[in-house]
């Protein structure tokens, strides 16, 4: 999508601990389900749930580790690089030209472009 390198590091840092939380949750899931169904007086075949929970635990652990490695190593994308993506699509309000320069002036007519955040 043309995004600068390291754009998703911030997301990885937030989602990584949540993935570990999810992995712990899936690990405890079969025991919790078994207790709840016993308390509700319902017989339940737990083997399928155990298998699925084991798969999910491994997947979430793997995702958590991968996200932690990605999120906590290397540099985040710079805000300037991200804002540059917006500037590419800006049109000069005076002459209609696509803005080529990022110094606050239109590259074609030279008029000052008001900064819009």
């Amino acid at each position: 999508m043309g995004l600068p390198e390291g754009t998703f590091r911030g997301l990885a840092r937030v989602v990584s601990p949540l993935s570990f939380w999810m992995a712990a949750g899936w690990a405890a899931y079969p025991t919790a389900i078994q207790r709840i169904s016993a308390d509700m007086g319902e017989a339940m075949d737990i083997a399928e749930v155990r298998l699925f929970s084991a798969i999910m635990t491994v997947c979430c652990l793997g995702a958590g580790i991968a996200l932690a490695v990605y999120g906590f190593t290397g540099r985040d994308a710079r805000d300037e690089d991200l804002r540059a993506l917006a500037k590419k699509s800006l049109l000069c309000p005076y002459c209609g030209a696509t803005m080529a320069s990022d110094n606050g002036r239109c590259g074609k007519c030279g008029k000052e472009i008001p900064r819009v955040r």
């Binding site: 949540l18 999810m22 405890a28 919790a32 389900i33 709840i36």
Partner: peptide
């Protein structure tokens, strides 16, 4: 049972991950 079910649902933070 209700309390255990509540705990069970908090074990899996899907909504937090998706909305993040």
């Amino acid at each position: 049972v209700s309390a255990m079910l509540l705990g069970l649902r908090f074990l899996l933070p899907l909504h937090m991950i998706a909305t993040a």
